[in-house]
Design a protein around this nucleic acid. Structure first.
Length: 419
DNA sequence: TCTGGGGTCCTAGGACCC
DNA sequence: TCTGGGGTCCTAGGACCC
């Protein structure tokens, strides 16, 4: 019996994506330490002589984190996730630019379209990275995907003017690891036979799925590299990390991963949240908090409508001044996409939280989503008053196990609802 | 001077039903 | 006074990722 052909999976990761997009429009910053992040209010200023004046990290005051930085800034120790104020200590002269998601989304669409034109089996992994299944791409197997990877890089550059790094291996886990190995602007190919020499020396934390907590726990057990994990007994890992995660650690460390490239998936939740410029108190800042709360619900309702979903479970998220977070949620009798219904459900959730401490973040989430089209699928026509037709429709539904409730709460009729 | 915003998945206990 | 198991839904928290 012939063995099934080995898969050929690519992971494509854009190089310092947000920062690189900014350099397209501010080419004079090329070669400089540039950082993207913070709040608003630090747009470059166009001067009469045609040059620009940029904000520097040292000028910044307030909350906010670094979203991305150029490789020059990273060399100074500035990394994404770092507080801007902390980064300013390390690199006071670095240029600070505000985040412009519209621009990044535009470039994201361009590079993904360029890739799909060459290889259609693409899995979205956020704004700046994708997996691509090259297994059945004509000619790709001949050179383990090298020529295909180069073509993809060329196409991305032609479409956007941006570079990326690509890893090509038999699965997603290894490809994700490999796209990092020759960054920026690199191609890394790897076969299963290369795992001991090229994968096992890497830190365990490089594996997608081994985060800070798991790394720390592994380190406490004397396990630092992926090879250390691979050398551990599966039962030892299961004993310390549980049946599911422990077994996965063992498989992952040996480079085994059967997950397919998934070209489409329905969203599970949609949310909006905001961190306040200063911490707010439920009583003393009631008005401000209430306005923000309502605004989040209105935005969320807009997102649902735009994307064509209704939600049956509304939740809130609070973060207190001590950075502790809590969530509460409420499942409704029917799906909704109405801002006032969302606001009312979120208000019920809020009542279940102790609001003694001041708040730094408030969020609203819509879960248990159903596509609007599925909810209203069978015509709801009351024009003729044809009871027979209606009965027939609902009978069909009872038999066919509706995927979602029909009872879509489109409008809030409760005039006394809180504001 | 701390730490954004948008997601996914997993675990675990209790309710409730058969 | 003792004694089931399984399945699903709901809720809360947490790890992790981009």
């Amino acid at each position: 019996m012939p063995a099934p052909a080995q898969r050929l999976i690519a992971h494509l990761d854009m190089d310092a994506f947000y920062a690189s997009v900014e350099l397209l429009r501010y080419p004079d910053l090329r070669g400089h330490a540039v950082v993207i992040g913070g709040g608003r209010r630090h747009q470059p200023e166009e001067l009469p002589d045609g040059t620009r004046r940029y904000a520097r990290l040292r000028d910044y005051a307030g909350r906010g984190v670094i979203t991305t930085s150029t490789y020059e800034a990273r060399a100074l120790g500035v990394h994404s996730g770092m507080g801007v104020m902390k980064a300013a200590v390390l690199a006071p002269d670095a240029v600070l630019l505000p985040v412009d998601f519209d621009a990044y989304r535009h470039c994201s669409r361009l590079f993904k379209a360029a890739v799909r034109a060459l290889a259609p089996l693409v899995e979205d992994r956020g704004i700046d990275e994708i997996y691509i299944d090259l297994t059945d791409l004509p000619g790709a197997q001949a050179d383990a995907g090298r020529a295909a990877a180069q073509q993809l890089k060329d196409a991305v550059f032609t479409a956007t003017g941006l570079t990326c790094s690509i890893g090509v291996t038999p699965n997603k886990l290894l490809s994700k690891l490999c796209s990092e190995l020759d960054k920026p602007n690199g191609i890394t190919l790897l076969g299963l036979e290369d795992i001991p020499t090229r994968i096992w020396p890497l830190a365990a934390s490089k594996v997608n799925g081994i985060g800070p907590k798991a790394s720390e726990k592994l380190a406490a057990l004397g396990i630092h590299t992926i090879g250390d994990v691979a050398a551990a007994e599966p039962q030892f890992l299961i004993g310390h990390f549980g049946k599911s995660f422990g077994a996965w650690l063992h498989e992952a460390s040996h480079g085994r991963d059967e997950r397919p490239v998934v070209t489409f998936s329905e969203p599970r939740s949609i949310s909006r949240e905001t961190t306040f410029e200063r911490d707010l108190h439920a009583v003393r800042d009631k008005a401000a908090l209430g306005a923000i709360f309502t605004e989040l619900c209105v935005q969320l309702a807009g997102d649902l409508a735009r994307k064509g979903y209704a939600s049956k479970t509304i939740g809130i998220k609070l973060r207190f001044d001590d950075f502790k977070s809590v969530t509460r949620d409420l499942t409704l009798p029917a799906h909704t996409m109405d801002a006032r219904s969302i606001r009312r459900a979120a208000g019920e959730c809020l009542k279940r939280v102790d609001l003694t401490r001041r708040l730094r973040l408030l969020g609203v989430r819509a879960g248990a989503l159903a596509k609007l089209a599925d909810l209203v699928a069978p015509r709801v026509s009351h024009t003729g008053g044809d009871a027979g037709d209606d009965a027939d429709v609902s009978g069909t539904h009872a038999l066919h196990e509706p995927r979602a409730s029909y009872n879509l709460l489109l409008f809030d009729t409760d005039a006394t609802s809180s504001r």
